[in-house]
Simulated scan of single mutants.
Amino acid sequence: MKFYGKAALIMALFTLAACQHGQKNRATAAVTDPDADRCGASAYQNYVGQPLSALSKLHFEHPVRAIPYHSAVTMDFNLNRLNFLGDKDNVITRVYCG
């Protein structure tokens, strides 16, 4: 086989390899890191979009912090603490551990 034929074969292989794409398994895509969700924030994601006052009806077994817009908070990082971040209209925009 001449040089041009080998080069064309190699280019064809590279072209076919470039067309391949990975497929994500839905079961593995939904798995969350248990250390990153120690406080159980994933169970409270349905509160995003609700007012911060909706939290007054709930009872928590672990530390919780409701953070209104532009409020001062400590910078200590506690993975067991559940945080509800509010916007300027006192609507929950994020629920996370920390």
Rank of each mutant, 00 (worst) to 15 (best):
A36M: 11
D87F: 04
Q23Y: 06
D87Q: 04
P68E: 03
A72R: 15
A66V: 09
P51T: 13
G86N: 00
Y44K: 11
D76W: 13
L79A: 15
C39F: 01
L16E: 07
D87M: 04
P34D: 08
I10T: 14
G40I: 06
Y4Q: 10
A8P: 11
V64K: 07
S56H: 14
A66Q: 01
L9P: 01
N78C: 04
T74V: 13
C97N: 10
K57R: 10
Y4V: 06
L55A: 00
I92S: 03
K6P: 05
A7T: 09
R26D: 09
T28P: 01
A43T: 14
H21C: 04
P68K: 00
A29W: 12
M11S: 15
V64M: 07
S53H: 13
A18T: 12
A54I: 03
H59A: 08
Y96A: 00
A17P: 00
L13G: 09
V91E: 03
P51S: 14
N25C: 05
H21K: 12
A30T: 05
A12P: 06
G98N: 11
R38C: 11
S56A: 13
G40Q: 05
V91M: 07
S71K: 06
H21T: 12
H70Q: 12
D35C: 10
A18K: 14
R38G: 00
N90A: 04
I10E: 01
K6D: 05
T28H: 14
R26E: 08
